[in-house]
């Protein structure tokens, strides 16, 4: 190894990190706050999405049921109108006879 490489090795000697480095790492491993916060936020978002989805589903089901009832009423009304017309025609024929 030549002088230049010896000088490089000397320059690149290992250095100790600042005091309290290990404690800082351990503190972060003991309280993974960032992850906990992320999990809480994700759970709250999931609950809200689920509740919103359920509400939308219920609203759509209600709308569908309402449309079905309206259609049924319209059909009933038309049928009763036709029946009424026929009754009126029969009554008129009887009166004329």
């Amino acid at each position: 190894m030549n002088d230049f490489e010896t000088q490089l090795r000397q320059n690149l000697k290992r250095k100790q990190p600042p005091m309290g480095f290990t404690q800082k790492v351990l503190l972060q491993t003991a309280t993974p706050k960032r992850h906990l916060r992320r999990w809480i936020l994700a759970t709250v978002a999931a609950v809200f999405s689920l509740a919103g989805g359920l509400e939308l589903y219920r609203y759509q089901q209600g709308q569908f049921a309402k449309q079905q009832v309206m259609l049924a009423l319209r059909i009933t009304s038309e049928k009763s109108h036709v029946a009424q017309m026929k009754i009126d025609q029969i009554n008129q024929r009887r009166i004329l006879q």
Binding site: L12, K13, R14, K15, Q16, P17, F21, T22, V25, L26
Partner: peptide
């Protein structure tokens, strides 16, 4: 951590 901190930090 104590054993390897100088290596990683350096």
């Amino acid at each position: 951590v104590q054993e390897h901190q100088a290596m990683v930090f350096s």
